[in-house]
Amino acid sequence: MNKLLEVFLIGISAASIYSLMAISMVLVWRSTRVVNFAQAGMALLSAYIGYELVSRTGNFWIALPLAMILGAAFSAFIEFFLMRTLLKHSSQGAIAAIAPIIATLGLLGVIRATIGFIWGHYDRQIEAPLSKVGFKIGENTIAMSPMSLFVLLFVIGLVIIVTIVFQKTNIGLALRASAYAPEIAQLAGIRVSGIRTLGWAIAGASGAAAGILQTVNGTGAISPESLEFSLLLVFGFIAAVIGGLESLPGAVLGAIILGMVLAVVQIYISGTLVFIVAFLLLLTVLILRPQGFLGTKAGRRA
């Protein structure tokens, strides 16, 4: 029974961070039909910016939102100057489908190299603002610390805000319309290219939060070659695909499924199998339900 609780807590903590990453993959996919592999680099860069802000201001609670804003600005910058030019000049055929993906992979390398150049190729440490020692229930320490509880609540809050913005506001309507049918949105008078940049900006903020929260909730260490960030990218992507790649609720659902399955494997079998199981899960979903859990067939086509 205790073990089951542990699985649940570990799973939900991991899921909260995966869902931030998955949300940013989904937002970028919806606005420009690009799978953004540079998201890991952008999240890592945001973690470094977070590190700088924490050491300068000495206050994590100021650094986190500031780093998210900068992450959003950087992501919007990439869309505006890199992706827009690229999509304009490769408008047809196989190259048009592949070029943006290769470009984001290249960008990932560039960001990592730049980080190494600026901050050096060794670990930097972000101090966690809250205790990472698990809460105690009676004699037992559970797998949920004040830090990971904050992460969980923060992510839930963020998901609620994003949902309200997308479902209830005019900007959200423009974002959805531009994602589903850019030409019709354009004919309705929406400035679709600006909305695309906005989609990337929100994705950048979400990715920045994922990078920083994962770091402080984990070992606190970041390095340009960080394996954790590559895993974050892969798990975020898998969560997004499980959820259907189109849908924000799908991204969160995918992250929860992935987090729980990986927690079960970690607790009952072995932590070394996590990577393999994640891919098996992805394959199983793609075979049994290729459109993902909350994706529609029509949506994938559009």
């Binding site: 309507l173 423009a174 959805r176 319309a177 589903y180 004919l187 008078g189 929406i190």
Partner: peptide, 30 residues
Amino acid sequence: VRNGVSHVSEGKSVIAQLTVEENLDLGALW
């Protein structure tokens, strides 16, 4: 559109994933 010219493209140009009212609101968002 902002200068008073609207186009309904071929093949029932509505956005299937949005509600009727959202489709209408879309035309006046700007």
